[in-house]
């Protein structure tokens, strides 16, 4: 038993596992809307865009959360506007805007080679460097986002289900999408340090897809996705201590493993339902 609890003796691990649970749950919660809108690529794209924002905020000596947050929010808004105004598919708009934003970050890094800060943590996640202050920020963002999703449940549901028709029924879809862009940017900023740019997309999509396989109810999908995100955040972080692998990778691998198990079960169940009746 002592061996199992051994990692909790370390403060860095306690901080890390708390951050992983919060970030996993948060990504699971937001991921439902992203998956159902068919915008799974946005997590991948926006996390890259935010990396560009992180570099710019470093160059301009802004606060990381503020600079990268505004940058991510503006990118998410630009994607929405481009899709609506130019009738371009969402995946193409995400590809153009977020890659351009990422390129700005790379260009600045290569231009100002005198950087003292390492951006490896932003790219791959650095759970060991999570401080009490980081946990506080993630906790506040999680509570705020949960409140927005709770009180805007109807508007978000209708806009996700059928954005065009929702307008006819009085839903201010442009406002709802702006709020969602802000929520998404905030969630990515919160999760960036734990999961890293390269892993965040999976953390957004896998718990939501897994939850979708488990239920046909929207409410249950939200709860399941958030719970699976938090659970795999805990499991992945815990395993990373023992296998000595980057925590972002073990969290995503835990999610992928769960997805495969649920998918196999779901396929087996469908097959069982589709078997013809047998008479003995």
């Amino acid at each position: 038993m002592d061996a199992l609890l051994q990692p909790f003796q370390f403060e860095f691990f306690r901080n890390g596992i708390m951050a992983a649970v919060l970030a996993g749950g948060l990504c699971g919660l937001i991921g439902v809307y992203i998956v159902l809108r068919g915008m799974s690529y946005i997590g991948h794209g926006l996390s890259h865009a935010i990396f560009g924002g992180a570099v710019v905020s470093y160059v301009l000596q802004w606060n990381f959360y503020l600079g990268a947050g505004i940058w991510g929010f503006v990118c998410a808004l630009l994607i929405n506007k481009t899709v609506r105004a130019a009738k371009i598919n969402a995946d193409a708009a995400i590809g153009v805007i977020t890659t351009a934003s990422f390129a700005i970050g790379i260009a600045l890094i290569s231009r100002y080679r005198s950087f003292t800060r390492s951006f490896d943590a932003a790219l791959f996640g650095n759970i060991l460097g999570v401080t009490q202050q980081d946990i506080l920020v993630i906790a506040i963002i999680t509570v705020l986002i949960a409140a927005v999703i709770f009180f805007m449940y109807r508007q978000l549901l209708f806009t996700t289900f059928d954005s065009d028709v929702a307008q006819v029924y009085g839903v201010q879809t442009a406002w709802v999408e702006t709020v969602f862009a802000l929520v998404l940017a905030a969630a990515l900023i919160a999760a960036l340090q734990i999961l890293g740019v390269t892993m965040i997309a999976a953390a957004l999509v896998i718990p939501a897809i897994t939850a979708r396989l488990m239920t046909d109810s929207f409410n249950r999908m939200i709860l399941l996705s958030a719970m699976l995100g938090a659970l795999t955040g805990f499991t992945g972080m815990y395993l990373s201590f023992y296998v000595d692998v980057a925590s972002g990778a073990t969290i995503v691998l835990a999610q992928a493993f769960l997805f495969v198990v649920v998918l196999a079960f779901s396929l087996f169940q469908n097959r069982a339902y589709s078997l013809p009746d047998t008479h003995v």
Binding site: F158, F161, V171, S217, F218
Partner: peptide, 17 residues
């Protein structure tokens, strides 16, 4: 989309922000 008949119809009710 994971919604029931009741939820789809409920979406049509006018609502505050």
């Amino acid at each position: 989309f994971p919604v029931t008949v009741q939820q789809v119809v409920w979406m049509g009710r006018p609502r505050p922000k």
